[in-house]
């Protein structure tokens, strides 16, 4: 492929990233975690930017780094698809709707949270997001929960975060350590499987 063709293709990917992340920022209420169902759909099913496993890695890394989770996810996917310009397009895309809507809301609608129609619309979206998250947990869990070890890790994380209110960063760090230990314990076995995969 010629240089021109490559640049052309990259520009197209950047535009697509900007557009998809703009929609993501525009249509989700409740912050980064509420974006995961829609992000999973656009990144894995619609555009094939990430595999089932990569989208989980993206969520995990985004959660464990400081800063805004939605920006982390946008930067991760954008960079993977089209380097720095892609990261920039996805990040600006996901942040822009917030910026514009807040500016409009402050200037025009002083009593946004008093209007029953608007409050009702937001309540409807939040209830829908609960359902979307349930479906997303099923989708994300399918390729990951392969053994009792994985199930125990998942349930322990849910208990620690939702019930004991442990910060997610500590949970992810502990999980990384447990995973390293586990891979050493089961090392001999998985090494053999690795060898078979390569053939």
């Amino acid at each position: 492929m010629s240089m021109g063709g490559q640049n052309n293709n990259r520009a197209r990917v950047c535009l697509r990233l900007f557009w998809e992340f703009l929609k993501l920022g525009l249509f989700t209420i409740g912050g980064g975690m509420a974006m995961i169902p829609q992000m999973q759909r656009i990144a894995v099913e619609d555009n094939k930017w990430l595999t089932d496993e990569e989208v989980i890695d993206c969520i995990a890394v985004s959660q464990s780094l400081p800063g805004i989770v939605a920006i982390n996810m946008a930067t991760y996917i954008g960079r993977k698809m089209a380097g720095f310009p892609g990261a920039l397009c996805a990040t600006v895309g996901v942040g822009l709707p917030s910026f514009v809507i807040i500016c409009i809301a402050v200037l025009l609608l002083d009593n946004l949270s008093d209007n029953p129609w608007i409050v009702g619309a937001f309540a409807g979206v939040k209830a829908a997001i609960c359902g979307l998250l349930i479906v997303t947990v099923m989708k994300l869990g399918k390729p990951v929960l392969k053994s009792p070890f994985h199930w125990i890790m998942m349930i322990a994380a849910l208990a620690a975060i939702a019930f004991a209110r442990v910060n997610a960063v500590w949970v992810i760090l502990a999980a990384a350590l447990a995973g390293i230990l586990w891979s050493y314990i089961t090392g001999a076995k998985s090494h053999k499987e690795d060898g078979r995969d390569r053939q």
Binding site: I56, A60, M153, A157, A176, L181
Partner: peptide, 28 residues
């Protein structure tokens, strides 16, 4: 790194499940 992700992936599923619990509060 691979071992770490082996532990982190299932935990991420739990994380998303707990997000559902947080979002549902005050709504459901």
């Amino acid at each position: 790194v691979q071992g770490a992700f082996e532990g982190i992936r299932p935990v991420t599923v739990g994380l998303v499940a707990s997000a559902m619990i947080f979002v549902s509060q005050g709504v459901l």
